[in-house]
Design a protein around this nucleic acid. Structure first.
Lengths: 348, 348
DNA sequence: CTGAAAGCGCTTACAG
DNA sequence: CTGAAAGCGCTTACAG
């Protein structure tokens, strides 16, 4: 039965030193595998440490060494597929090399805003930070700088720090080109975001690429077919539904590209609910390859989220563990690929 | 530009003391709001601290005080809806009261096993732990005890510690009763788990309740209609598909209850793919009320995951902050409710 | 109300 | 190869 009143008494480095008949300095060196320790001494120390179930106190080590072996992972949301997958991959990569993740979920009440990083969240608490698709404010960038924290961005780049991401424009181009190659020219878009939502950038990049791809094929853009959305499936369903009911069958878009798979699910569901058949009445394509995309038969552009998390974690670990300085100009693109399933067909 | 080589030089308590013309002890007291400090002194200290942008080093504070103000959150997976939602809710509740979350994702290569908590993950690193649907091994329980760590469980109970959860049996009963009330008697089940999968318990409880509910209505259990599943939508789709193709239309189950919404999605998709209509050819009900359940029209038993995270976090914070000892016998049930949507209809 | 001092448990020059 | 000592930056009795 745990009892928070009774403090845990575990052995300290002093206990080990006494028991092994050496100084604490020697214990420290022996256990950390530093040289300048005789094999016999080391062996003895290790053995005693094991007997005593000794383990260096991370907090004492931190104070003395200046490193915490924890990295801050900061996200604007957590409950969406992309972010949860990222955190999971990062946590595993870091733990494999003795580091831990302190998690910050900056989600606010509304999609329009988010909380901000502050000194008390990071100062002496983490050795570095990984941002997940988070445009940093100038104040936040200044904070990282002042705290001298190495950082790497995933998704949305962070000025002055390396970044790993997919090529949003390219991914969107693949999605849109796929529709066009099937003969679609009446194509709607869901996932635009109002100008005041400044804490997410992905929407801008993808939308621009959509418009450019249309333009490259001489397809005129229909502003009223570019739908705003907070990137949830529910909102996507609503907006898609509104769009589809606005037009007669002949006037309607024949396809819709969603800037994320979750929105694509919403679009498919909306069509379904209106008695329209996907893909025959409406083709849908997304970006992500969400866990549910396979089962729902969604044609999409896959991004490897796990790989992005691993690359970012290892970049940071290189700086932390191997003194490989981070190159601020690094921009690592993880490739994407079109995954054809059942949600796209030629227009009727 | 961040430069990990240049160490951050921030002011320490000594700087503040010097500047304010008092001792470090006084600074410590003044800033922490302890009594026995004259108003003028306190004011002066606070002012100087602000000027110097001073902030106590958490690692030094930890070493001196013995508390880290971080709690370990440990989950068997992270990328599933239930867990991500829980982590998000917990992080917010903890941060609101000055605590942080150190995240442990114990997911292993296979669904059949998981990694284990060990001393080096927790010792002197966290003040307490919250487990997410995780049956603890005896060794892990002993570890918590040895480290004297207060802990609370969410979902799967943890012997000797309080727990917050839903009533699995009741939730499953609601789901199954709903089907029966609509006239179904040929009901399949998906979400059973082989006996060797010992690190998740929810499947057992739900399955038992399903069988009991059938029995209560005098409906014989068909073993071959109880489907194993690793609780992913993909596997659920496969198994459902196999089941549905095994039988002629007249011999088939008319409904299926899924032990989670993600599996329900799989079941719906499988039916759809076989040309069967949900709910007319096959009714489907789940448990959860996943973010996507609304858009997909799934009838389900809703559980309030956010509430579970908040209750657990506040329970732990009570022990940590207010010295309210944790009562090991506490079992808090968060209510569930049936949410009727479009995936259930009377059998043909 | 305030300060000097010990202590938290390590690491890291510095001697030897 | 090893130890004594200072130092990391706080908190906490203990005096006064």
């Amino acid at each position: 039965m745990s009892d928070s009143a009774r403090p845990a008494r575990m052995s300290t480095i002093t206990d080990v030193a006494r028991e092994a008949g050496v100084s604490v300095a020697t214990v420290s060196r022996a256990l950390r595998g530093l040289d300048r320790v005789s094999p016999e001494t080391r062996e003895k120390v290790i053995q005693v440490a094991e007997e005593l179930n000794y383990m260096a106190s991370p907090t004492a080590t931190s104070l003395a060494s200046g490193r915490t072996e924890v990295v801050g992972v900061v996200a604007p949301f957590l409950t969406r597929w992309f972010f949860a997958s990222l955190v999971s991959a990062i946590e595993k990569s870091l733990r494999a090399r003795g580091h831990h993740v302190l998690l910050f979920d900056l989600e606010d009440e509304s999609y329009d805003s988010r909380l901000h990083l502050s000194q008390n969240l990071l100062w002496r608490r983490v050795d570095g930070v990984i941002t997940l698709n988070l445009p940093m404010t100038d104040e936040e960038l200044a904070l990282l700088d002042r705290l001298a924290l190495p950082a790497v961005a995933i998704g949305t780049p962070m000025p002055g720090h390396p970044c790993v991401r997919i090529d949003d424009a390219d991914a969107m181009r693949q999605a849109t080109e796929h529709l066009i190659s099937q003969g679609h020219r009446r194509i709607a878009y869901i996932g635009a975001v109002p100008g005041n939502v400044a804490h997410v950038l992905t929407p801008q990049g993808r939308r621009r690429a959509f418009e450019e791809t249309l333009a490259a094929h001489g397809i005129p853009l229909r502003e009223e077919w570019v739908l705003n959305c907070d990137w949830t499936a529910d909102a996507a369903a609503e907006h898609t539904s509104a769009l589809l009911t606005c037009f007669s069958a002949a006037e309607r878009p024949t396809a819709i590209v969603a800037a994320s798979d979750e929105m694509a699910f919403g679009a498919m569901a909306a069509a379904h609910r209106l008695g329209l058949h996907v893909p025959d009445d409406l083709s849908v394509v997304g970006i992500d390859d969400h866990t549910l995309s396979n089962v729902l038969g969604l044609t999409t552009v896959r991004q490897d989220v796990e790989a992005q998390g691993q690359v970012a974690a290892n970049l940071l670990l290189g700086a932390l563990l191997d003194d490989q300085p981070l190159d601020p100009s690094v921009m690592t693109y993880v490739p994407t690929e079109l995954v054809v399933r059942d949600s796209v067909a030629p227009p009727r």
